Deep mutational scan, measured.
Amino acid sequence: MQFKLIINGKTLKGEITLEAVDAAEAEKKFKQYANDNGIDGEWTYDDATKTFTVTE
Rank of each mutant, 00 (worst) to 15 (best):
M1A: 07
K50S: 12
T55V: 10
W43N: 00
A20C: 04
A24K: 12
W43S: 01
G14N: 04
G41F: 03
G41C: 02
E27M: 10
Y45Q: 02
T44S: 07
A48L: 15
W43T: 01
K13N: 15
D47K: 12
I16S: 06
D36L: 08
G38R: 11
I6M: 04
G9I: 07
D22A: 04
Q32V: 12
T49K: 11
M1F: 12
L5F: 05
A24C: 13
A48D: 09
E15S: 07
V54D: 00
F52Y: 13
K4T: 04
Y45D: 00
A48M: 11
K28H: 06
G41E: 01
Y45G: 00
E25W: 04
A23D: 05
N37L: 09
K4A: 14
G38E: 07
L18C: 04
G9N: 15
I16Q: 11
Q2S: 14
E56F: 12
D36W: 07
A26H: 00
L12Q: 09
G38N: 10
A26C: 03
K31V: 15
N35C: 04
N35G: 08
K29E: 04
E42T: 14
T44H: 15
T51R: 03
K10C: 06
T55D: 13
E42F: 15
D47N: 15
N8W: 04
D46T: 07
A48Q: 10
L12W: 15
T11G: 09
I16R: 05
G41M: 02
E25H: 12
G41L: 02
I7L: 05
D47P: 15
A48K: 13
Q32M: 11
E25L: 05
L12A: 14
D47W: 06
L12N: 08
N8D: 04
M1Q: 13
L12H: 13
V54F: 06
A20N: 03
N35A: 12
G9Y: 07
Q2Y: 15
N35P: 01
E15W: 12
V21K: 08
W43V: 02
K31N: 07
T11L: 14
T53K: 12
A20G: 06
E19S: 09
K31E: 05
L5C: 04
E19C: 05
F30C: 03
E42W: 09
A24V: 06
Q2P: 07
N35S: 06
V21H: 07
T51G: 02
V21R: 06
I6L: 11
A26I: 02
F30Q: 00
K28P: 03
F30R: 00
D22P: 01
Y33V: 12
E56Y: 14
T11H: 05
L18E: 07
I6K: 09
I7M: 10
F3P: 00
E27C: 05
V21A: 08
L5H: 00
K4I: 05
F30E: 00
T44W: 15
F52T: 01
L18K: 07
A23Y: 15
D40Q: 09
